[in-house]
Amino acid sequence: MSDAKLLKDIIVAIATLIDEGTFEITPEAINLREMDPSRVAMVDFQWSKSLFDEYNCSQPTKICINITEMLKLLKRAGKGDSVELTLDEERRRLNIKLRGKYVRTFSMPILEAAVEEVPTPKITFNVKAKITTDGIKEAIEDAALVSDHVSIEANEEELIMRAEGDIMGATIEMRKGEGALLDLEVKEPSKATFSLSYLSDIIKAASATSEISTIEFSTDMPIKIDFPIREGKLTYFLAPRIEA
């Protein structure tokens, strides 16, 4: 792959939820779908082989990797470095070769892969909103000033986020077609509440991958946050908080 930064950004986005992850590598694509340790959030990632300059995979395989460690290595990549990942089946190691002004090869162990396969939640979403990533990031930061959770609601015209803390409150309104809110489709008005620590971690970590993001939700159901990336997908699911 010609740009190590692209890989680093994706690993940053994944590492925010999980320490270890299992990549499924098929002749067509790389997939990863994992829940965070407390099973509140899920990341679903895919990169098709067309993204890579060179992609060889003769038979499907699964490799479990310590994502946190991998991120440490990738952070060493300089601007414009290219990266090459190879799997050493015999030694059960993943080699990461960074090619810049000189060539560095790191190797890291492959861990025992988990057998269980997680499906993604099947939910009928009643609201779909397209927002600039910067816009949603700012809004979440605003809400995080006053509380640890935020309710998101939508009607035909606008998307409203409300945060209610012990002493302070915040309301953030985004009108359709104005500024940050690029598009809004509402089948029926909906409202759900989410933990801000998860939301802000996810959005902060994924913000480097895409300039726009799509959120989908329904009343008291998980929210789906989608970051359109080149030749693949990066999607998060976050379970709601339901009070009383």
Partner: peptide
């Protein structure tokens, strides 16, 4: 509060696949 109010993704994986 998180234990009482926060739902898990797993609750939406089973039985809800329609």
């Amino acid at each position: 509060r998180s234990l009482i109010y926060q739902r898990r993704i797993t609750q939406y994986l089973k039985g809800l696949k329609t």
